[in-house]
Write a protein that binds this DNA or RNA. Structure first.
Lengths: 183, 183
DNA sequence: CGCATATATATGCGTTCGCATATATTACAG
DNA sequence: CTGTAATATATGCGAACGCATATATATGCG
């Protein structure tokens, strides 16, 4: 049970529709959480059955009506319980690293193509995150008195994303150099 | 279809039993791939039906008999096809980052406990990987002429693991410092 | 002897997930 | 007025997974 908790988090400040949630996912936390729109609607349904959320149908004139969900007291309680749990961060599986690990079974040129595609993907990714940080006027790296200066928790994870991309790009470029040097 | 490809990779140099594969998973690639033992046995069965692997029953006297699996020609072909595919590395979901992202819904002390548990977990993790690198007499970071010096692909991913831990530990310590400074 | 542990394989079962697809409304371009 | 894109919600279905559990052999400890 994981996506439901993400949804609780996204609803903690204001009510949103399933469609809103999907857009927020794509534009703010997609670099550490991905979810299909169909999953979101289904999770919303399950969460309502559990009494974590409630919805109100909002009639719209410029677009189809929508169901706007908000946290119930139980939902907020469940969110706080989950946030305080020191759980292990799973989801370690990384197909790209696996390909590299076993790449002695394939010619160096083939592996170089995989690495170069990866590098392009990473450079795209970091550009997008840096654009977001820029829009937020966010200092990277965060100073130790960040919380006094209006920095919010959302920026902690964004900084993680950017620094992880930096590290991955650096490492990938190094591996490419090593492969180009192959005997 | 993912674990089957990991298994193809693990079998590429020599035949192994399901039990062997599980141990190898835990001692060499667990930091980027996790899998339940039951999954391994089931995957092995499916792979055999597809003609990717074959097994031979080996009679043992000091322990129960075992099935030793090896790649077929089709299996090796499938492995090479997969290795050469520039696929996107998915599995981005990170419950720990999610907790941090929404942590304004919970007292700072509660979040500090989560972060400190995370830090302890990371320090355990890096210790284990450094122990492995040491056993392999592996240079960290890898020099550009690494491949001339007997470095193998398995070390590329191990270096990734170590450097990722270093980055995460650094970042986590910084966030803890920022949180301790909270107004 | 009895019990725990390591080795070894296997099935039941529920959870989670994402792709494909269906359906309906509103806006806008050609 | 016709098609397409954006908004909005929803279901069918199979893939992948991991926990719990069953079963059996061999070793070693007390």
């Amino acid at each position: 049970m994981s996506l439901p908790h993400i949804i609780l988090g996204m609803l903690r400040k204001k009510p949103k529709s399933g469609y809103d949630l999907k857009k927020e996912l794509q534009t703010t936390i997609q670099y550490f959480w991905e979810a299909d729109i169909s999953r979101i609607y289904r999770s919303l349904g399950e969460m309502q059955k559990k009494g974590w959320v409630d919805f109100e149908t909002v009639i719209q004139e410029d677009s189809p009506n929508k169901k706007v969900y908000s946290l119930t007291k139980d939902g907020r309680k469940e969110l706080q319980k989950w946030l305080a749990e020191p759980g292990k961060a799973t989801g370690t599986n990384n197909p790209f690293l696996a390909q590299l690990h076993f790449s002695d079974a394939v010619p160096v040129e083939a592996q170089l193509k995989v690495m170069e595609a990866r590098l392009a993907f990473l450079k795209d990714g970091i550009k997008e995150l840096e654009r977001r940080a820029n829009n937020l006027n966010m200092p990277v790296p965060l100073p130790e008195d960040a919380l006094q200066k209006g920095v919010v928790r959302e920026m902690f994870s964004l900084e993680y994303g950017i620094r992880k991309y930096q590290f991955e790009i650096e490492w990938t470029e190094n591996i490419i150099a090593v492969l180009r040097n192959a005997p």
